[in-house]
């Protein structure tokens, strides 16, 4: 491996060279046996490394970090409004603050707790073995199962051809409502597609919690949320597929 071009060959194999340098190295590779051997080893190692363990963050660690960040920001979820003068006039100090806090709570509730609820439901589903109640990639199995076990019966379609494989369904709770969850896999990632009966709560468009992303939308009388740690672009692609399938229903 004494070829003085070996590092440049490696850079070429790693896709780090520009077009001009790549051409030069390709010409060099034609006649250098050392670098040809290097190229083969590079390919072998790359193939072998596909089996190396990739250590993902376990849900418990995500939660611990999220809690630590909460403590760090000293997040008081529901701050009383700052109109204390008015409320102090309206009632006794503590009582007034309590009323202000209650009103602030009601105003803040939808978006905040929705995201927190779904984040928790998603993490819960990844822990233990409660990801799937009914395992199937067949919507003729999953959809009727929902009808018997949840309040809603959302479409359950497999998008395997697009890389999103339906693996089953689950009954869950979101925001106090019984929700149907269609579970998909995308590579090593899980996507939970939640559906629950729309009760007029205002949905945020997107949210994120503990590294999981969420996209919300409504369709007819159902609220939907897709939750996953897949790439944001992939999650959007997934949601587009689901919406297209809903439009067909």
């Amino acid at each position: 491996m004494a070829c003085e071009e070996s590092l440049r060959t490696q850079a070429y194999l790693d896709g780090e060279l520009d077009a001009a340098q790549s051409l030069a190295i390709e010409a060099h590779l034609e006649q250098c046996e050392d670098c040809q051997a290097l190229a083969m080893e590079h390919a072998d190692l790359k193939a072998a490394m596909a089996d190396a363990t990739y250590h993902r963050a376990p849900p418990a660690l995500r939660m611990k970090i999220s809690d630590a960040l909460d403590a760090e920001t000293k997040m008081v979820p529901f701050k009383p409004a700052r109109r204390s003068g008015f409320w102090l006039g309206a009632g006794s100090g503590a009582g007034g603050m309590a009323i202000a806090a209650a009103i602030a709570f009601l105003l803040l509730m939808p978006a905040n707790t929705m995201v927190a609820d779904l984040g928790e439901a998603h993490v819960r589903s990844l822990m233990g073995d409660h990801l799937i109640d009914v395992a199937s990639s067949d919507h003729h199995t999953v959809k009727p199962w929902f009808a018997g076990h949840t309040d809603v019966s959302p479409p359950a379609e497999d998008f395997k051809a697009d890389g999103f494989t339906m693996v089953g369904g689950r009954a869950d709770y979101v925001h106090g409502a019984r929700a149907a969850v269609v579970v998909y896999r995308h590579g090593a990632h899980v996507i939970n597609l939640f559906a629950w009966a729309d009760r007029g709560a205002r949905l945020p468009a997107t949210g994120s919690r503990e590294g999981y992303r969420m996209i919300f939308w409504e369709d007819k009388d159902l609220d939907f949320a897709a939750v996953s740690d897949v790439d944001p672009a992939e999650l959007e692609k997934f949601v587009a597929l689901v919406k297209k399938s809903q439009a067909r229903e």
Binding site: Y54, H55, R56, P58, L61, E210, G211, D229
Partner: peptide
């Protein structure tokens, strides 16, 4: 959730797996 936390969730938390992978290998 305040703005800093929101930005952190959106920009840094997606790399939590990469952080875990590196720490476990180190």
């Amino acid at each position: 959730m305040n703005e800093k936390r929101r930005r952190f969730e959106a920009l840094a938390m997606p790399h939590l797996d990469a952080a875990t992978n590196l720490a476990r290998w180190l």
